[in-house]
Computed example of a mutant assay.
Amino acid sequence: MTEVATGGASWEIDGNTGGELAGRWWKWALSAPDDRSPVKDTTGEHAAWDQPDDVWFLAGTYGGRTTRTCPLPAGRPVFFPVLNMQHSRSHSKTPLSLPVAEALARLNGMPLQLSEFAGPFRTRFTRRYAWGLWGVLAPLIPGQYVLEIKADTGEGFWVDTTYHLTATAD
């Protein structure tokens, strides 16, 4: 199992803790129309869809290998899932987390700290529960970056995502 840290001051963005950010990420991801969904996007074309002003969300995937290229604003923190799930708490047989055989993220080859966060969030009609291993990037200076994200549950579900990021000045 990959060792992860618990939330702390570095996991607070504009007063939002890691669990709150995870809920915000899910609301963002679930609100996208199918034809502009950053999660379904295999190229990065829809990465900028409805981004909030205080943080930049990178999309997760539905598993497998994906390579995305996208610009993002320099000077804004970046929050992203490595491995995550969400569901209604009414499904008592649904586990509240996934098994983790491997989980890592690297920015330009340097390993990043991951943290596990869980918590409730509300969509327009329902209360949901989020769990995940998440990464955060401090605001980037203008330039080119490669973010690699890999995870494996050991039970057949795996993620291998590469982001080619260009941080641009506003």
Rank of each mutant, 00 (worst) to 15 (best):
T2S: 15
T2I: 15
T6P: 12
W11L: 08
D14W: 00
D14F: 02
G18C: 13
E20F: 02
A22V: 05
G23K: 04
R24C: 10
W25R: 08
W26F: 14
A29D: 09
A32C: 07
P33A: 14
E45D: 13
A47R: 02
D50C: 03
P52K: 06
P52L: 03
D53W: 00
W56E: 08
F57Q: 09
A59K: 01
Y62I: 14
G64R: 13
R68N: 06
T69K: 15
L72M: 10
A74M: 07
G75C: 10
R76Q: 08
R76T: 14
F80H: 01
V82Q: 03
Q86S: 12
R89A: 12
S90Y: 03
P95H: 06
P99F: 09
A105F: 05
A105Y: 02
R106H: 13
R106V: 14
G109E: 11
S115R: 07
E116R: 14
F117S: 07
A118R: 13
F121C: 09
R124T: 11
T126W: 02
Y129I: 03
A130T: 10
P142W: 03
P142L: 11
G143A: 08
G143Q: 07
Q144V: 11
Y145L: 08
E148F: 01
G154W: 07
G156E: 13
T161H: 01
A169S: 09
D170T: 12
